[in-house]
């Protein structure tokens, strides 16, 4: 695939600030989470969660509903910043730098992590406008370049053929499955290092789900993917690594094969076997 890059500063850190190097992590980890605690109005939701997200692979976070999967995912790109009463402590590091350290440019940080929500969240603009939204924020003004970026990313999610003749129609007219792929294209257009997916296929029919899963499997060659999933079957289909959460705690994490076929913890065995959750 032709590589059309636009110039931008990828540093997350403002001025010359550098956070302290974190505790040991696996080599090249895309994300490294250590001692993460999240509480809302004093009530803990996540308790001392630590794990690594290996690069260029799919990490699935599984667990029964209400176990804190979504909260965990949202704390990875600081989405809790604007929620009143939320308190986050601990370390999340990307490229060895703590994202919760003071002086972090949150907007630049979020640019490095694309977000795929439960339901497609198309912005109130055209198909083209949705994909071009991020690059425009980062100062891409030339129409030609914008068009190239839009085309490239729509092709990357296999949407180009379907929508190239209605690029300027409101994005809301696409089917739900197409909308979700559009959201993925929009996220890719800002060249993230990581994609975060929050039950990204739960609103889709099986066919559209399959399409998204195939896309993710293809994308993991270039970037790291963290997926909260509500179905074990999905995790079995696409996960390279699995993190099992239960009641706000990380019970077990490891390679998919190990967690599914030979879990260490009893709780994991019961969940994977289908007797809880």
């Amino acid at each position: 695939m032709e590589n059309i890059l636009f110039e931008m500063n990828t540093s997350v850190f403002v001025d010359n600030y550098k956070a302290t190097a974190p505790v040991s992590c696996i080599e090249n980890a895309a994300l490294c989470i250590r001692g993460l605690n999240v509480a809302i109005q004093g009530k803990p939701i996540l308790k001392d969660v630590s794990f690594d997200v290996p690069p260029k692979s799919i990490t699935c976070i599984i667990g029964p509903s209400g176990c804190g999967k979504t909260t965990l995912l949202r704390s990875l790109n600081r989405m809790h910043d604007y929620t009143a009463g939320m308190k986050v402590t601990g370390q999340v590091t990307i490229d060895g730098n703590d994202i919760y350290a003071p002086g972090v440019d949150v907007a630049a940080l979020r640019r490095r992590m694309g977000l795929l929500a439960q339901r497609p969240t198309v912005l109130p603009m055209s198909v083209f406008g949705n994909v071009a939204y991020g690059p425009k924020l980062y100062g891409v003004k030339r129409g030609e370049l914008l068009r190239a970026i839009v085309e490239r990313n729509l092709k990357a999610v296999g949407l180009w053929e379907e929508v190239h003749d209605r690029l300027h129609s409101p994005a809301g007219i696409l089917s739900v499955g197409q909308q979700q792929r559009l959201c993925l294209a929009r996220a890719l257009a800002v060249q993230p290092a990581i994609i975060l997916g929050d039950e990204a296929t739960s609103a889709l029919d099986p066919l559209a789900t399959r399409t998204i899963e195939e896309l993710l499997l293809r994308l993991k060659q270039q970037l790291s993917i963290v997926l909260v999933t509500h179905t074990l079957r999905q995790a079995r289909r696409i996960a390279d690594h699995v993190v099992f959460m239960y009641m706000g705690e990380m019970v077990e994490s490891g390679s998919a094969q190990q967690v599914f076929s030979n879990p260490v913890h009893d709780l994991t065995r019961e969940f994977v076997g289908g007797s809880i959750g």
């Binding site: 989405m79 907007a107 940080l109 992590m113 977000l115 924020l137 929009r186 996220a187």
Partner: peptide
Amino acid sequence: PRDLREASLALGATRWE
């Protein structure tokens, strides 16, 4: 909906943007 704001923030937009 909050989702819409988060979609924009997640792309690296500032709050004003």
